[in-house]
């Protein structure tokens, strides 16, 4: 079986992570920011999988399971926050939520 070279796998993960990061920075819509964070998480997970398959270790896959679990928890909290913000501010613009100055 022909294996993919590790560089291309890591490159894909890096590109995905950077895309996610940039869209967190430039998007103002909170839902899109949440999606971008998910992309970043999955990019990190991909890097783990690639590294795990390179050294034929199970650790990478274990870490991926962890990341999935954490992502699920994060999304549930994040969505609850988004609901609250929308409820209070009637908008999904993250810059509108600056009243607490931090």
């Amino acid at each position: 079986m022909k294996t993919l070279p590790i560089e291309s796998g890591l490159l894909l993960a890096g590109v995905l992570f950077t895309l996610g990061l940039i869209s967190v920075l430039v998007r103002r819509n909170i839902i899109f920011m949440l999606i971008s964070v998910e992309i970043m998480l999955n990019a990190a997970g991909l890097a783990f999988i690639v590294a795990g398959s390179r050294w034929a270790q199970a650790d990478g896959q274990v870490m991926f399971i962890f990341i999935l679990t954490m992502a699920a928890a994060e999304v549930s909290v994040g969505l609850a926050l988004i609901l609250q913000i929308y409820h209070h501010l009637k908008t999904l613009d993250s810059d509108a939520a600056d009243r607490m100055n931090g």
Binding site: L21, V24, L25, R28, S94, D95, D98, N101, G102
Partner: peptide
Amino acid sequence: TQSGILRWYVMGIV
């Protein structure tokens, strides 16, 4: 720096 704008904080972290 405590502007309350979330994206600046992310920028800071980055």
